[in-house]
Simulated scan of single mutants.
Amino acid sequence: MLQLSKEDLVKAYTQMRTIRDFEERVHEEFAGGGIPGFVHLYAGEEASAVGVCMNLNDKDNIASTHRGHGHCIAKGCDVKGMMQEIYGRRGGLCGGKGGSMHIADLSKGMMGANGIVGGGPPLICGAALSAKTLGTGGVAVAFVGDGGSNQGTTLESYNLAKVWNLPAIFVVEDNGYAESTASAWSVAGSQIKRAEAFGMEGYEVDGHDFFAVYEAARDVIAKARDGGGPSLLHVKLNRYFGHFEGDAMTYRGDGEVDALRESRDSLQIFRQRVSETGLLEAAEMDEIDRSVAGLVDEAVSESETAPPPTRDDLTTDVYVSY
């Protein structure tokens, strides 16, 4: 097993548990009518976001997708500010004006969730070019789904990143479905061969295994920082909920999600591996579970009573000013 410090293991498990509890609670609250707008949940994919983002710092940038809550948490965004944003409250990270699909926090290098499929890769080319030009040592990471990997913006970004030798990483989170269309049917060739076609290195990773993702991300991010150019990670994982909240998931087989939760749950895999090796005790992780549950409870409670944006608030940040 990849050797990490106990502090790192606690951080990894805390972030994965926070994503899981946050998403499952949003699922409940949305069903109860408390959350406006559209919601896409990341539960089941926690090891990918955390495994990648634990190799990053605040000078590094990420661009997310419509399924962005997990990436936000993994990049260090404030959980309560996120929940208020999803509730459309004034205290949200974007003042309650962005909602679930447009959460951003530039102070953490989180360039934003994005309702445009394949919208993130061009953005990180700009961020990576800025880091290269200014010599900050930063890298930029785009998370994109299997559906987004078919978009022209994504392929053009591969080309641009390679031509300019940018410190850019493309993380294709392949959860098996582009909305309701199986990626096995809709994605021709392989993600790795696509990377190779542009002269990039590409690696396939088990997205249920935090340690596998962390190690692969560590290597390509270090290479990018040293001027080695862009790389691609094809992370194969599964989501537990529908494409969006309200999706009946009739395209998935009977018992498919239950079987995944039982045998391929990233949190359970993590717990088992660190417990067996004595790196973390089960009691320590149980305490983390309780602490995270309390944090999520507080986030929901405060969001329910927080004020919405005022009319004046809604007319700010409409145009860029210099």
Rank of each mutant, 00 (worst) to 15 (best):
G115Y: 04
L279C: 10
H27I: 06
E215R: 09
R218W: 12
R264H: 12
R67W: 07
T250L: 11
A306H: 01
V139L: 10
E24I: 10
I73D: 04
A12D: 01
I192H: 09
A182N: 12
A222T: 12
K193V: 13
M54A: 08
D297Q: 11
V117D: 03
I19S: 01
L166Y: 11
Y319A: 09
V205H: 06
F244R: 05
R20E: 08
T181V: 15
G253K: 14
A293S: 15
Y319G: 04
G120H: 11
A197D: 10
D174K: 07
S266P: 15
H102A: 14
K132C: 08
E179V: 15
R67A: 02
S100V: 04
V187F: 12
A195V: 14
D254Y: 09
S64P: 03
R67Q: 06
E287Y: 05
T133N: 13
K6L: 02
F22R: 02
P307G: 03
G95F: 04
K75Y: 05
N61A: 15
H69G: 00
D60G: 09
G81Y: 08
H40Y: 06
S321F: 12
D60A: 11
Q268M: 11
L314N: 07
Y319R: 06
D219W: 08
M110R: 08
D60R: 10
E215T: 05
A306Y: 08
V79A: 12
D317A: 15
K162E: 14
K97E: 03
T316W: 06
S266Y: 08
D174M: 07
V171P: 04
L295R: 11
Q3N: 13
E201F: 09
L160T: 14
K236H: 03
E28V: 11
G76H: 02
T153V: 12
Y87S: 01
R218T: 09
K11C: 02
K97R: 15
A104E: 08
T65Q: 02
G44L: 00
Y322Q: 11
M54Q: 14
Y87F: 15
S186C: 12
A282H: 04
G145C: 09
I35W: 02
G145S: 10
M1H: 13
Y87G: 01
S266Q: 11
T65Y: 02
V213H: 09
M54K: 07
E284G: 06
